[in-house]
Design a protein around this nucleic acid. Structure first.
Lengths: 225, 225
DNA sequence: CCAGCCCGTTAAGAAACGCTTAAGAAAGTG
DNA sequence: CACTTTCTTAAGCGTTTCTTAACGGGCTGG
């Protein structure tokens, strides 16, 4: 989920009637983008940032299975639900093994589809999330404050907390500004925002926590050398 | 996956005939543990470490929905598939919203069940760029750092990384300066740049890594003959 | 062994990049 | 509605990285 608003959903459906219908059906709960062929689906899937995708099986320009295979091979891990008229068990096996996470056959029940999509997008948060350790600091799960190992507590703003949480999620990994932008902001801001917030964090916490990797981005953890 | 061998599967099914049958069906692909009531399912689910669970809907001692709700509230995030005779859309919605990840109705197709379980246990790992081995060193796929076999890590600049990657791509091959220029730079620079960067690399890493072939260029690896 | 080319090393200017600051816009609050 | 806090942009300045060039030592072939 890129922000506090609705999750984004990419719908790939060539049927001129069914496509808009499904889009309308999902509209209250998702920001739906409808594309009507596999090639557009691939392009959107690769370039956009989606919380979940619904793809038809038979598509012009690029088959649904081929689309999913292509996306997965490019490292796209977004949950994908296949929605199609082809209901043979063999077809289901093929679709799921290609990398889909769920398979629903037409005609489908609207409530069931919605529930399956909820199941796919559900981000499971354990009831008592352990505070995230960042060097000598501890990020509170509410993402609004950090405590040093020696009692001192610093409160963060929402963006500061999100940025720090994103970096802390994968220590040692280097995040580009664009990645961080997609994770914490609406992706419409200037990449320079990140610099500003990194500066804020470094001033509030110790300078050493967030490392700069020149030309790439930022990183938490392992100082190289 | 808890170990290198088969994934573990907890099957909660009270039917004395169907339970062992399903267990046998899944046996080739999973380490299956069968329990026949909800209370045992809860206990196993909480204490054991499972890669996936298959639970029946109607269970003695504790309903399947209640079981899932209880597990989720305790922070158990294991993928759960409901396998049941109750096939109403409403039932499916209830089961999925309780925290199940998939819902299959009896009678079920063995191949489909297996595929859906594969989809649930599939751990999607984005194509992990394998580190490139260079003598006693390992080039990080981000191409921005190298680690020696004994822990020491050295960070590289962008050009240093590109140059090292180009040389390491074909060990033992001798690259001319022009080839390296075309591979790492805009081909508009002086060939002498290469010398400078080779020097930087030799200073950061050990001198022996990059060999000079007089009159030709540079090389990683063994000398010819 | 020597002349001549090739390579290693260093330094310094140029360019790209990141840090810091400030100020206006937007959002939240009483 | 006024006030405060937070968000976002932009610009100046310092740092890192890139590229060139020059000098001195080393390699090769006759």
């Amino acid at each position: 989920m890129t922000s506090a608003d609705l999750p984004s959903l990419l719908l790939v459906e060539d049927d001129a009637v069914l496509g808009p219908l499904i889009a309308e059906l999902l509209d209250p709960d998702y920001r739906v983008q409808l594309v009507t062929n596999g090639r557009d689906g691939l392009h959107q899937g690769l370039t956009g940032s989606w919380d979940v995708m619904v793809v038809d099986r038979g598509l012009p320009a690029m088959d649904g299975i081929a689309l999913i295979t292509a996306l997965r091979s490019k490292g796209i891990a977004t949950p994908i639900l296949i929605l199609t008229a082809l209901g043979d068990a063999d077809e289901k096996v093929r679709g799921l093994d290609a990398g889909a996470n769920d398979y629903v056959t037409k005609p489908f029940d609207a409530g069931e589809l919605a529930a399956r999509l909820r199941a796919l997008t559900r981000t499971f948060t354990p009831p008592a999330p352990a505070p995230v350790a960042i060097g000598d600091w501890e990020l509170d799960p509410t993402q609004r404050s950090v405590r040093s190992v020696y009692g001192q507590t610093v409160s963060l703003t929402a963006k500061e907390g999100q940025l720090l949480a994103a970096l802390a999620a994968e220590p040692d990994r280097v995040f580009t500004r664009d990645e961080l932008l997609a994770a914490c902001f609406h992706a419409s801001e200037q990449p320079g925002v990140i610099d500003t917030y990194v500066h804020h964090l470094r001033r509030k916490i110790s300078k050493a926590v967030i490392r700069t990797v020149h030309g790439l981005g930022y990183q938490i953890g392992e100082a190289h050398e």
